[in-house]
Amino acid sequence: MGKASFVVRRTLQLVVTLWAVGTVLFGLFRLMPGDPTSYVVSSQMTQEARRQIIESYGLNEPLYVQYIKFLQNLVVLDFGQSFHSNQPVTQVIATYLPNTLVLMLTAFIAAYTIGITLGVLSGWYRGSRFERSTVITALTARSVPTFYVGLIVLWIFGAELGVIPMSGMTSLGTQNAGFWEMVFSVDFLQHLLAPALVLGFYFMGYPLLIMRSSMLEVLSEDFIDVCRAKGLKERTIMFKHAARNAMLPVVTAAAIALGYAVGGSVLIETVFAWPGIGREMVRAVLRRDFPVAQGTFIVLAATIIILNFVADLAYGYLDPRVTYD
């Protein structure tokens, strides 16, 4: 099988997976105990008002009609209206998704730069005390829950020392002209620092450990000996020859990990009261606002599914040795 048919098959699989996630969600939210309409209408309303509201959300129609409509709307990315605020769900997503992305990408880029560098060094200086301490740090970083590290950071630096803000993304009462204006304001960066560092510390362990084991594999290959024989400098061998060849597993792992990072943004956003999409999803679930919960969940899942897809395709382009059969 050639590359083209692999891409076609993989794309089909992407579509099927997205459909399956949507269907499962549709079923789950309609399985929720109790009448879904009871979250929309209150008992004091007149029969007529109740009926109108239920009809306006399309909740009176048979399930299969609702399902077909749901799928049709999914294709054009229309997730309906919030039961809570009556806003269109797409608008809710457009408000919260950029906040999550700014936080995640900042933490992610920092974590991968530092993690990869440490991974290269610890693979190179194998068996040293430096290697052991980086590996243990990486394991610790992945063992202590991020939200707990966040709590401790908030307690020490927020409550006790008062050097970082306790919650939110901007101070109360600040007005910003636009999104980018806000992102580059000092106030925003102050709020960003703590959650980004906590997340970065957590993300760092993964590329570090992968890079290390990938380095160990590359360093045992013949071309490294050739480099040595040529009399190249140690640092040139380490970064230019060994590290570049060892990068491949990290690159594909990074694409997948970024997806799961966005999908797992729930806890850190809750701790730092960061107005992101994960926290919004939890709040929507808790107040049974299922159009919003559904929409935000699909965004989180789609991020993972699409980045997995990208990683699969990228693998073939980055490594010419990959065959499709």
Binding site: T17, V21, Y260, V282, I305
Partner: peptide, 12 residues
């Protein structure tokens, strides 16, 4: 694998 762990557990 397409389902985010924590959000899925929360919904379930």
């Amino acid at each position: 694998y397409g389902m985010p762990l924590l959000p899925t557990v929360i919904v379930l």
